[in-house]
Design a protein around this nucleic acid. Structure first.
Length: 233
DNA sequence: CCCTGATTCGC
DNA sequence: GCGAATCAGG
């Protein structure tokens, strides 16, 4: 497959929408995850929380010792004087913003630009997360929690579903306690009919609860159990 | 092992 | 420009 305009467009959209390279790849079809990543980078789309990014250390010399090809580059020499990077210097990462945490003592803040009062702490965007949401530093959220209005507690009314059903609290020894439905379900209740005297169930359900034992070999598959049986949906 | 994105480099 | 191979973290 080739990168037609539509495919590129889709890649762009999905990538910026936070889809993973794999998702994009098999959504587009005909390309591998690597192809998608490669293309995305070539398009300049990169930047995305990568599992293996935050460390900038490995630089050049370390990562791979040998690659069996193309090591002959005449322009590749170790310029002895070309090390403009003092190690102890402040990291040149792009975070010029001072940390919003209360500065203890020493740091006299840089001269406030006359036309820009620094007092208003603007949320500092650190990076862009999947889905395009903006990550911010820990101290940057301003009013994260809108106060909830006070509420009055109101007794819950039973849903219409079980309004006239026999609940656990309605049980006594005169009404059938055969369960209808399954415990935990919203409409779980009990049979509630008049009990077959001497039994905890109505006549009907006694017929299901107590069955004559058939001789071995002549048994039929047992009816569904009121309790303990596997849930079947 | 699976997943992820980044990078390298032969084509 | 493309993408397989590889790396490396979760």
């Amino acid at each position: 497959m080739s990168w037609t305009d539509e495919r590129i467009e889709k890649l762009r959209k999905m990538w910026e929408g936070g889809a993973t390279a794999s998702q994009i790849a098999d959504d587009l079809g005909g390309v591998s995850r690597n192809a998608v990543i490669g293309k995305a980078h070539r398009l300049g789309l990169k930047a995305r929380p990568s599992p293996v990014k935050p460390n900038e250390k490995p630089a050049r010399p370390a990562p791979v010792a040998k690659r069996p090809a193309a090591e002959s580059r005449d322009d590749e020499q170790e310029a002895p004087a070309a090390r403009p990077e003092p190690v102890a210097a402040a990291p040149a990462v792009e975070r010029p913003a001072p940390t919003p945490t209360p500065a203890p003592v020493s740091a006299a803040p840089a001269e406030p630009a006359a036309d820009e009062p620094v007092r208003a702490p603007q949320p500092r965007i650190v990076s862009v997360g999947p889905g395009g949401f903006l990550r911010q530093g820990p101290g940057d959220q301003q009013q994260p929690i809108p106060p909830a209005p006070p509420r009055r507690l109101v007794p819950a009314k039973p849903s219409a579903e079980i309004a006239d059903k026999t609940s656990l609290l309605d049980l006594n020894d005169r009404i059938c306690r055969w369960p209808m439905g399954h415990p935990g379900e919203p409409d779980f209740h009990f049979c509630g009919d008049k009990v077959n005297p001497g039994f905890p169930y109505c006549v009907d359900h006694c017929g299901r609860a107590y069955q004559a034992q058939l001789p071995r070999g002549a048994r039929r598959p047992p009816p569904p159990l009121p309790f303990g049986g596997p849930r079947v949906r």
